Simulated scan of single mutants.
Amino acid sequence: MTMVLSTPTAGQVGDAIAALREWQHDDAPMQLHPGDIGWNHRFGTAETAAVVRTWRRDGRILAVGMLDSPTLVRMTVAPDAFRDEDLARRLVKDLSLPERGVLPEGTVAVEAPRGLLLHDLLDEEGWGVDEPWTPLFRDLAEAVEDDSGVSIRAVGLEQAQDFADVLRSAFNTTRPTREYRREMSAAPFYAEARCLGAYDDQGNPTAVVTVWSAGPGKPGLVEPMGVHADHRGRGYGRAITVAGAAALRELGSSSVRVCTPSSNVGGVATYKAAGFTAMPEIADRIRRV
């Protein structure tokens, strides 16, 4: 049986998305989600295809990875392949050898769900663990009630500057631009996403969220959620997160999940206030040089 590692063309990214959608279910550990690729689409169609990796055996996709940065790959595998030894050993080689085109030399990291045989093999190769992250989960079986009184609006292309302004402030970065919103909406799978904004009484944007469905009966994802620095501590983060959960329920999602650094105490508290339950901490695997 032949295992093939490849980087898809822009037209082939849909195959990776389809596999990720199929693999999502409420009992699965936190893992790469179609929405992660959707959010990456803010950089453009070709740029998104260039950071995706697939591993196929006899034509079937068994693993999907996405380079979140040149030194960090986020990945998951088919549910029936979590303990597949041939796949795990191939992944270790491809992740360890720069010439395979996944990760470079030097210090690199891998995000992969709990339970993979890959983790056991990385232990044997001397890989360590990085800083802890907290996965959070909210069931959407019951109606999502919003009692905040906060004005929530859809954030379309006309509000692209609001989207960028809030994210720049929330994450203390200059990177988000108006183009983020346009490129994100150009993704072929954006029809199953919602972008929302919270506004104060003067009409100023205070918080934004984008949520991504993986299809009816499957968990949705929050990616990203941010509160403008000038409006923190006033309940806008909770309100926009609850609104995002409600939007996912309308799309048919069975639950909603998110993962944030455990050091982000305020973020964890906001998600808990929005009805999320914190799950056991997880950590990326890291090879330090």
Rank of each mutant, 00 (worst) to 15 (best):
T7F: 01
G11I: 03
Q12Y: 05
G14E: 11
A19C: 11
L20T: 04
R21P: 06
H25D: 14
A28M: 09
M30C: 08
H33W: 08
P34R: 02
P34C: 11
P34W: 03
R42A: 04
E47H: 01
A50L: 04
R56C: 12
R56K: 14
R57F: 03
I61F: 03
I61M: 07
L72P: 09
M75F: 05
A78L: 04
P79I: 03
A81R: 14
D84W: 09
L87F: 12
K93N: 12
P98F: 08
G106W: 08
G106A: 08
P113E: 11
L121S: 01
G126K: 03
G128H: 13
W133D: 13
L136E: 01
R138Q: 12
A143D: 15
D147R: 10
V155A: 09
Q161S: 15
A164S: 10
F171S: 07
T173Y: 08
T173S: 15
T177M: 06
R178V: 13
E179V: 06
Y180S: 06
Y180T: 04
E183S: 07
S185D: 13
A187N: 11
F189P: 02
Y190T: 15
C195P: 00
L196H: 01
G197C: 02
A198E: 03
A198I: 02
G203C: 13
A207V: 11
V208M: 12
T210H: 03
P216T: 06
P219Q: 08
L221Y: 03
M225N: 00
A229L: 11
H231L: 02
G233L: 08
G233N: 08
R234P: 00
Y236M: 05
R238I: 00
I240V: 15
A247L: 13
G252K: 11
S254C: 08
S254A: 14
V268Q: 12
T270D: 05
T270G: 06
A274V: 05
T277H: 11
A283N: 06
D284H: 14
R285N: 09
R288M: 14
R288S: 14
R288H: 13
